[in-house]
Design a protein around this nucleic acid. Structure first.
Length: 752
DNA sequence: TCTCACACCTTTGAAGTGG
DNA sequence: CCACTTCAAAGGTGTGAGA
């Protein structure tokens, strides 16, 4: 990246996009300057003091983008572009070789069985104003990464469908159309960027991510944050969800050595259908509650097996009943003592199950008839049962994978680390939090780090247990050994995003309109751990990235620039019941490419009701999203979970080239369907054994343990940074940025 | 349906202790 | 200086009452 901040400010750019303005978040988004679909339009949510550090010369964006878009549309060689545009093409071009290097990432969901158990019951995730963690925690293990290359790992949570749900008659039912979707945020793993080797050596966890329904939540660290967040808040960032709506977490791998390159990097997206959940403010399904209680160590106090509140309550009640019984006996000497006693016991036994064999345990038995051993383990240590015990044991029994167990080196190391940890104090998330403290048990984590041969193959299970038999899934059924397997999308080549073919993409009914196809086009802001901004390299390169990362400025042209056809399309889409986003996407799809960007950007910005936090709400998606959404008028998002894992490559760097039809895309997207098409999916089972079992905790010991991270972009773990240090870093950043700002101000005033 | 205070629990890190 | 233990604060849970 060789772009200098001394780039002259180009006039005519809306100040609203100036990132230095205090009333706006340091939002910057890279427009689809070259016709590709940026995986998302990131809005960095930053710690207050560091926010300015990401301030970028957004004012440059529009004119440059106009040049690029114009060139892309007209086929003008980039070399003929003005120096500004050309300057911004350089980094893109230099990235190409890196993107060309073939790696074959595979992602395996940790605690898969646990997730499946929850999923069978229609998992609920509690969301609160202050934010609640996900349980089970979202943890994955990566393989197939290029050991040397650096990757950024992200997670986000998107709506699974367009429905609102209600819990009625002990089951979740659709209760209408979804409420307007909350602005989404990308959660960047705090260890990002790290080498593939480092990622693969650990379990990547995102348990620090919290779910909230509080739209004024500040934990995205917007500019509006008035004070330096506490250390705890640094480590826990939140994403906003709607209660009673269904969501799907997604995991993204981006090969990039700098967070700032995210916008033009290739995204590989992995979706694990079993991680789908319904957000609730209070548990609706008792079974879910019990399952959580039985598995979440923090809820230990509610277990029937221990001395928790429930047990005490139960005992109290039991005691009072006994007293009552005795009184009855005295009053009525003819009563059957034993029977009355038993009656009382039966009553509780039925309602709450015996202490040792908890309800949850029995539930698990129902779910997993064969894992009696898990049960016993869970009794001994429910905590272990949650992640290591049950899951690991079950895994050992049911998952035919010895790769993890065959990783003695790493496992041994982890085991040593675990020795420090008191066995009586297991971590709730052994592979991560325990690992972060060097207590991880390899013997437990290793079996957990199984590979999923079916990881890349399609799932035969649809959401909510429905059996949606889409042809692709039928085709892949034979390949899928596991009921759940991640969907993968790789964003890469951008040809199909071009205007001409957009509406013609023939996605399977299930995929068309499926949000999954625009998953990264949602305009997710980025949730970054503050430590990730303590990157000298990042900031230095950031300066040059300004224009590219800057928003699609000048999008204020907005809808006024729409032609009638586009408007009609949008109106029609809206009339057909599409969401606003869909309608917008439809409109965009009907527009010339360069207009699409503007329209969408404009809408997104205009519609953002959340101020600085959400400059690019859902509608701020680009062409791919538009294509997928517009491809069908019937919103059928579900299918993306039931369909074959698509693997799309949206190259951020290529000029849009219309595809003849969708077959090309699908060929790439569904290698499992098109024989040999995809390679990655075809290599099921060919995974190398996972190295260590360890945790790449959000707290992240990665950086502290490893000195191999490049010095320029090492992300400091929040845990490792004291507040003082963080403050200092942020102040430095602020100074840096203030310098940039003054530069830019001068440039702006000096330009015509 | 949501919010809040609450009790119960784990995690975390600092302080203390001993070798 | 290191390893270990102890302790207290912080924070994660589901509960249940009330709005």
């Amino acid at each position: 990246m060789n772009i200098s901040m001394r780039e002259p400010v180009i006039p005519g750019t809306s100040m609203a996009y100036h990132p230095f303005l205090p009333h706006r978040a340091p939002d910057f988004a890279m427009s689809a300057v070259l016709g590709h679909q940026p995986p998302f339009f990131p809005t960095l949510a930053l710690p207050p003091n560091g926010a300015a550090a990401l301030s970028l010369p957004g004012a440059l964006a529009k004119p440059i983008m106009d040049q690029l878009v114009g060139a892309a549309d007209s086929g003008i060689p980039f070399s003929s572009l003005g120096h500004q545009a050309a300057a911004h093409l350089r980094p893109l071009k230099t990235l190409e070789p890196e993107e060309e290097v073939e790696d074959d990432p595979k992602v395996h969901l940790e605690a898969k069985e646990l997730w499946e158990q929850f999923h069978k019951r229609g998992t609920e995730m509690v969301i609160t104003k202050s934010g609640r963690r996900m349980f089970p925690p979202f943890k994955v293990r990566c393989t197939g990464l290029d050991k040397k290359a650096k990757y950024i790992l992200l997670m986000d949570i998107v709506a699974a469908d367009d429905c609102r749900y209600k819990f009625h008659n002990s089951r979740w039912m659709v209760a209408g159309k979804a409420d307007p979707e909350m602005p989404k945020r990308m959660y960047i793993h705090p260890d990002s960027p790290a080498t593939g080797e480092q990622w693969m050596s650990k379990v990547v966890t995102f348990h620090k991510l919290k779910l909230t329904n509080n739209i004024s939540d500040k934990h995205g660290f917007s500019l509006r944050c008035a004070s330096l967040p506490s250390r705890s808040s640094l480590a826990s960032l939140q994403t906003i969800l709607n209660s009673m709506h269904k969501y799907q977490p997604r995991f993204h791998i981006v090969r990039a050595n700098d967070i700032l390159k995210l916008p033009y990097s290739t995204f590989r997206t992995y979706v694990f259908p079993e991680t789908e959940f319904i957000a609730v403010t209070a548990y609706q399904n008792d079974k879910i509650t019990q399952l959580k209680i039985d598995n979440n160590p923090f809820a230990k106090g509610f277990r029937d097996t221990g001395n928790g509140r429930r047990e005490k309550r139960k005992q109290l009640t039991l005691q009072s009943m006994r007293v009552y019984d005795e009184r009855q006996k005295k009053e009525n000497g003819t009563s059957d003592e034993s029977s009355s006693e038993q009656t009382a016991f039966k009553c509780f036994a039925q309602s709450t199950s015996p202490a040792v064999s908890a309800v949850g345990t029995s539930n698990l038995k129902d779910l997993c008839p064969s894992d009696g051993e898990s049960d016993s383990e869970s009794k001994e240590d429910p905590l272990e049962a949650s992640d290591s015990g049950k899951i690991t044991t079950t895994t050992a029994l049911t998952v035919n994978n010895s790769s993890a167990a065959a990783a003695p080196g790493a496992g041994g190391g982890a085991g040593e680390a675990r020795e420090k940890h008191s066995p009586s104090k297991p971590s709730p998330y052994p592979p991560d939090s325990a690992g972060s403290r060097g207590r991880e048990s390899a013997s437990k984590a290793a079996p957990d780090s199984r590979h999923s041969p079916a990881t890349i193959s399609s799932s035969t299970r649809s959401l909510a247990g429905e059996e949606v038999k889409s042809p692709p899934r039928e085709d892949c059924r034979g390949l899928a050994k596991e009921p759940f397997a991640p969907l993968t999308v790789q964003t890469d080549s951008g040809g199909h995003l071009a205007q001409g073919h957009l509406p013609s993409l023939a996605f399977p009914p299930g995929l068309a309109g499926q949000q999954f196809f625009n998953p990264l086009g949602n305009g997710h802001p980025l949730l970054l751990h503050p430590g990730q901004f303590a990157m000298g390299g990042a900031f230095s390169s950031m300066a040059g990235m300004g224009p590219l990362l800057a928003t699609v400025s000048g999008a204020s042209a907005g809808m006024s620039g729409l032609d009638n056809t586009a408007m009609a399309t949008a109106a029609a889409a809206a009339a057909q019941g599409l969401s606003g986003a869909s309608a917008a996407a439809a409109a965009a799809a009907a527009l010339p490419f360069h207009l699409q960007q503007h329209v969408l950007a404009s809408q997104g910005l205009a519609m953002s009701p959340f101020g600085s936090l959400f400059p690019y709400p859902y509608t701020y998606m680009a062409a791919a999203a538009a294509a997928s959404t517009a491809a069908t008028s019937s919103v059928h998002r579900h299918p993306f979970l039931s369909a074959v894992r698509p693997r799309l490559r949206y190259s951020p760097y290529s000029v849009p080239v219309p595809l003849p039809d969708s077959s090309n895309l699908l060929t790439t997207a569904m290698p499992s369907l098109v024989g040999g098409g995809g390679g990655a999916e075809g290599k099921v089972g060919a995974l190398a054994s996972s190295p260590a079992s360890g945790a790449l905790d959000s707290g992240s010991e990665l950086n502290s343990r490893s000195s191999t991270l490049s010095s320029g972009s090492v992300s400091l773990s929040p845990k490792l940074c004291s507040d003082k240090e963080a403050t200092s870093e942020l102040q430095n950043i602020q100074r840096l940025v203030s310098g940039l700002e003054s530069k830019q101000d001068r440039a702006r005033s000096g330009s015509p």
